[in-house]
Amino acid sequence: MMLRRIGLVAWHVFKESVRDRVLYAIGAFAMLLVTAAVVFSQLTAGQDLKIMKDFGLATIELAGVLMAVFIGVGLVAREIERRSIFSLLAKPLPRWEFVVGKYLGLVLTLTVNVLAMSLALYAALAYQHWVAPLGVRASWPAPASDPRLMIAVLMIALELALLTAVALFFSTFSSSTLISVVFTVGIFIAGLLSADLRAFNDVVDAPVLGYLVVGVGWLVPAFSAFDVKNQVVYGLPLAPGFVLHTIAYTVAYAAAAVGAAVIALRSREFK
């Protein structure tokens, strides 16, 4: 019964999201950019396939980040603004189920979008494979339609799942959508720099400040930990343990962030 209620909320979010114009705008733009990678690759001397893959994966990630931030911060805040949360909370639906359902719904939306953009990228890469002479194909470090690209896609999906949890937390915490966007983007940028923050002591000799910065580096969501685009594009191997640990990390951190969102929503009084 509990799972059914969460599933219903998630499905409702998915249906609502796919009708969102913002989603279509970002999605169409991303599709255009992914396929435009074919054109960009023609402008470079050599490295055309690498640039197509770099450009395609970066576009998928960037579009996903925009979707996660702009839809994620409105997940709960919009219900509060519209006052539709009153009717929802009047139903036999615990707040934590409401939050978890919202979260899973957006993760489902993002996953579908990432998969659609990945298909577009694979189509562009297949075209590149088709037009490239045999000698050129032999010089590629990894095949054009390399199935290992899906590892990078999986990592992007995990990154977006984590970012959605952060956006959801700010959505319940803050009463302003703009402030939620600023906080979420700020945490995202800090997370992209988290590896540098954790290695701060290797670069600078400042013990006290160093430990403080390293501590922050471990606390913020490690968005940089999902970046395996270079390894995948160069066809370098990634251990299954690496992928499994990354999945476990995402689940643990996202659970903590969603848990914090539940606490924040529980502590709010709606009059």
């Binding site: 471990w218 606390l219 490690a222 930990a225 395996v228 270079n230 390894q231 160069y234 370098l236 191997p237 990634l238 251990a239 343990g241 690496f242 640990h245 990354t246 476990a248 990390y249 643990a252 951190y253 659970a255 903590a256 848990g259």
Partner: peptide, 21 residues
């Protein structure tokens, strides 16, 4: 959850470091 996630990240980076580019 935060502590668990940090330890998972630490374990991953030490046991399965990604190949350097």
């Amino acid at each position: 959850g935060l502590a668990l996630s940090a330890s998972l990240l630490y374990a991953r980076d030490h046991r399965y470091p990604p190949p350097p580019v």
